[in-house]
Design a protein around this nucleic acid. Structure first.
Length: 533
RNA sequence: GCGCCCGUAGCUCAGUUGGAUAGAGCAACAGAUUUCUAAUCUGUAGGCCAUAGGUUCAAGUCCUAUCGGGCGCGCCA
């Protein structure tokens, strides 16, 4: 809708600057915070006035004049200049006719083909297979999955990938810890001491001494991680194992390529990537004194592999504890001749888990932790997903289990779900009326609460596009809450099923459109849209 | 010390790539249901947008500095 209006305004503005050799500023259409002004507004007169040498109010008037000559006149009941803004108010007919579009498109409403089928790889979670997932992983799982879903909804072809760091010192420590447990010995210094290690030792007792013990152990842990992800409805297209890069000598090759391109140096017995001269804070080790490659070397190889798979865009979702890592990866890819701009690394803040006033520490090593699975089992998938999506990724998230459980009844997730269930309830009650909405008398939807609801329903495609572009799924939660609030308000203002068949049909159409939009948003976020509660 | 993120109502957080009078939920208070679900709605109260400068017609939003909090700064992953 915004894009459509931008086009209309651009046309009108062109009429104003015709033959003056002026370049038009970028046209921005926004919904004014104060809706008394109208449904949409543009600040174009403020930007345009100095260019055409007129006063701002005069420019606004001129723009209004032009707009009234064009297509805007058909869809707007008011086109007003107020100060430096031009405000547009849509007609009742335009808004109510749009309900038909929503009902026709149904589950497709909101989607677009803005992505043009471009291929995107979204890498997220990527936890080490050294223990169960915790709430922090849950946040990336949900946000990464939501971003993927948003991109799909706006026309990208998305691959969801989980990178499995199944190589290295941490793995060796884990193996040693499990073996020690089997022998009833204390875990070695710096090893893993969590209760789950004991469980693993018990579970894999019969595999002790098996030539592929390590692989079996890691697979067992990974399976556990997959199980939780499934409970959260997160499905990956691929689990990419770091070990496969080593098996195929890809890490060696990547290092070799860096050597050949003159980006390495030998110091203190190790091979370093000379990243400092390329803008990194310091040089980084690729091959240790021991001869082993580092995690970083493998990660370069991994990203080379991603580039080789011909994606149009690569997105990584990482925790802030990895932010220092961003520069070196990008610098390395640039050094190897790839465009680092194609790789977008999204950094999210951490989650801390609370039980009331008491913070729950999460450390795999001490074993004092609550797993993601326990959280999901305790408060449910819907609430977990909703809560983890709700906050902006830039905000540190305090997740209070007690609150999430205790306030189960006036939890925001139920608020939105309830709106959906209420609508479904109306349709159950309406029964035979349902068919009537095809010939609904939509011009009867004139109550302010009806108008506000229709106006909000119009926004879904814009909201989805913006959320996808900004990689900010929490916007969809915000939108859903606002929409639910508008519906609940309407519900109290207007009765849907009445003796008046015409009003009933119109309101059923409105409510049906609201149901569709709520359903589509909830489905996008993989939160259940219940028909009754 | 350096880098990244954050600081908005008592609490948890939104705030549309700089726009008009800063919002919601929870908590508090006062009301609403003979009607399609009260898991709801309406109203009241609550603010020096951390602080100080700067840029701009316009700053919660951008820049600089300071204070406060989180995270990182391994031949860990």
């Amino acid at each position: 809708m915004k894009k459509q209006l931008e086009g209309i305004i651009e046309k009108a503005a062109k009429g104003l600057i015709k033959g003056k050799g002026i370049e038009l500023p970028v046209i921005v259409v926004q919904a004014p915070k104060n809706r008394d002004y109208g449904d949409f507004a543009t600040n174009l007169p403020i930007l345009l006035a100095p260019l055409i040498g007129e006063a701002v109010p005069k420019t606004a008037e001129l723009l209004v004049e032009q707009l009234k000559k064009g297509q805007a006149a058909n869809i707007c009941e008011k086109i007003l200049a107020t100060g430096g803004f031009v405000n547009l108010k849509l007609t009742q007919k335009f808004l109510s006719d749009h309900l038909k579009t929503i009902i026709r498109l149904d589950s497709e409403y909101g989607k677009s083909d803005a992505g043009g089928g471009k291929k995107v790889l979204v890498e997220f979670v990527s936890a080490n297979p050294t223990g169960p997932l915790h709430i922090g992983h849950g946040r990336w799982a949900v946000i990464g999955d939501d971003i993927s879903s948003l991109l799909e909804a706006v026309g990208f072809k998305v691959t969801r990938e989980f990178y499995v760091n199944d190589v290295g010192g941490q793995i060796k420590k884990l193996v040693a810890s499990v073996l020690a447990r089997m022998d009833g010995k204390p875990v070695p210094e710096g090893g893993y001491g969590g209760a789950y290690v004991k469980d693993l030792a018990e579970e894999l007792k019969s595999k002790r001494g098996h030539p592929e013990f390590e692989r079996i152990l890691l697979t067992t842990i990974l399976d556990g991680q997959k199980k939780v992800l499934k409970k959260l409805d997160v499905k990956f297209d691929s689990f990419f194992r770091e070990s496969s890069l080593h098996d195929e000598k890809k890490v060696e090759q990547a290092v070799k390529e860096l050597i050949e391109k003159g980006h390495t140096a030998e110091k203190e017995g190790a091979l370093w990537f000379r990243s400092e001269v390329l803008g990194d804070d310091k040089d980084r080790v690729l091959v240790r004194e021991s001869g082993d490659t580092t995690y970083f070397a493998a990660d370069i190889a991994y990203h080379l592999n991603k580039f080789e798979r011909k994606f149009d865009r690569l997105i990584n979702v990482w925790g802030t504890d990895h932010h220092g890592y961003v520069k070196r990866v990008k610098v390395a890819l640039g050094a190897l001749g790839f465009d680092p701009k194609k790789l977008e690394i999204i950094i999210g803040q951490l989650v801390s888990l609370w039980r009331g006033k008491e913070q729950v520490r999460m450390s795999k090593r001490t074993g004092e932790m609550i797993t993601l699975e326990e959280v999901v089992d305790e408060i449910g998938k819907d609430a977990t997903r909703f809560f983890l999506t709700m906050a902006s990724k830039n905000s540190h998230l305090d997740f209070d289990l007690e609150l999430a459980k205790q306030q189960a009844s006036d939890n925001p997730v139920y608020y939105v779900q309830y709106a959906h269930a209420r609508i479904c309830s109306i349709f159950r009650e309406a029964g035979h009326h349902v068919g009537a909405r095809c010939n609904a008398h939509l011009h009867l939807l004139i109550d302010p609460s009806e108008r506000a609801l229709m106006r909000a329903l119009l926004d879904l495609p814009d909201e989805m596009l913006l959320a996808a572009e900004k990689r900010e799924p929490h916007r969809m939660v915000e939108y859903a809450r606002q929409l639910a609030a508008l519906f609940h308000n309407f519900y109290h203002q207007c009765r849907v099923i009445t003796d008046d068949a015409e009003i009933t049909s119109a309101r059923l159409a409105l409510v049906d459109a609201a149901r569709i939009v709520l359903h589509n948003v909830l489905k996008l976020l993989k939160v259940t849209a219940p028909e009754r509660m």
